[in-house]
Design a protein around this nucleic acid. Structure first.
Lengths: 130, 130
DNA sequence: ACAGATCGACTACAAATGTAATCATAACAT
DNA sequence: ATGTTATGATTACATTTGTAGTCGATCTGT
């Protein structure tokens, strides 16, 4: 098998790091630390460890700019979230997305905007499937 | 804080066990092993360990029937899945469910049935919100 | 009544994870 | 030129997780 497939199980902590990197990259570790620290007080050593683990897992790569590294993701956020969503829905909802949405609905977690977006998606889907 | 709150982080393996227990309970450990083994060959000791951990975490409890234990969940599947879905969507999709559904749509993972169910949900939602 | 099967309790142990600290080195400030 | 600082590499260590094995007690078949 070739080296490109990020075989990554990305842990929760690692995901947080990846998440802020996706927001804007390439970025140095201190950029990343700074972004994370807006939300949670993570020690800079901790973040570096997570970055290294992500690199080792094939999720990130970096280029050297002098002494610092410029990190960038090797997988797109969209691809990752899509894959995770599929596996999540398959594990918890037998692969069907409607029951998940139903949970949101009966929890009052659906906004008008959500509903509008869902309607648009459905319309689109129906145009493609008839 | 009182002891009842299942503070559980339920691991993946633990979830599989819980999942078949939800299907039908109370159930003995051998029932559970048997159900699990329809899908994956898990050693019976492994399953027992997972059951104990779930009990310790406050996710399950049991009554003794002679020598065996009759396990039952302390949390409802619906509650659990709803909570997990909320936290999942919040982590990966900024809390909005439509983008998740969009991922399914553009991946051709939506069936006519899904769409029908979504439409029904929306109709329902609109009746409750006007 | 005794041997073997079975049950839950307890123990084991490597890998993954969260959370850093230490170390060598390179850059920077004075 | 030198002390200080910032960087990545390496090491550390407790906890959680996956995956069982062992042990003592009980049940069961004969």
């Amino acid at each position: 098998m070739s080296k490109d497939n990020p075989k990554a199980d990305i842990s929760n902590a690692e995901f947080e790091v990846l998440d802020v990197l996706w927001d804007d990259y390439p970025a140095t570790s201190s950029d990343i630390v700074e972004r994370l620290n807006r939300k949670k007080p993570w020690h800079d050593k901790t973040v570096k460890t997570l970055l290294s683990r992500l690199v080792k897992k094939g999720v990130l790569d970096f280029d050297k700019a002098q002494r610092q590294y410029l990190y960038r993701p090797l997988i797109a956020r969209e691809d990752y979230t899509k894959k995770e969503a599929t596996s999540f829905v398959s594990r918890l909802f037998k692969g069907k997305v409607a029951p998940l949405v139903a949970g949101f609905a009966n929890q009052n977690s659906l906004s008008q905007q959500d509903v509008d977006e869902l309607k648009a998606l459905i319309k689109q889907w129906e145009q493609n499937n008839d």
